[in-house]
């Protein structure tokens, strides 16, 4: 499973978060919404201007800006 940045993930691609390298409020906000290492995510889609991105996480949908997604690395699954 290759490890890439969340920003590079494509629509409908899934993967498992490997690390979130940010502290402070942003880090906290991400974590309390369920974005922690080991969580499985799927890219739901992107906004018309390609930013922000919508993710499916733990049965809900979260949105993140691209520059916020930069802090997250993901082990992506090969598309079946």
């Amino acid at each position: 499973m290759p490890e890439i940045n969340l920003r590079q993930m494509k629509k409908d691609q899934s993967g498992t978060i490997s690390a979130i390298k940010v502290g402070g409020e942003l880090g906290l906000r991400m974590r309390e919404m369920g974005l922690v290492a080991g969580t499985r995510i799927t890219i739901q889609g992107r906004a018309p201007l390609n930013d922000p991105v919508a993710l499916r996480v733990m049965g809900g949908i979260l949105t993140l800006r691209n520059n916020e997604a930069d802090h997250i690395t993901v082990f992506v699954e090969d598309k079946v």
Binding site: E25, L26, R29, M30, M33, G60, T63, L64, R65, E68
Partner: peptide, 11 residues
């Protein structure tokens, strides 16, 4: 700085 856009899209 911009506040995080970590937001939930409710069903």
């Amino acid at each position: 700085p911009a506040t995080p856009f970590v937001m939930e899209l409710p069903p």
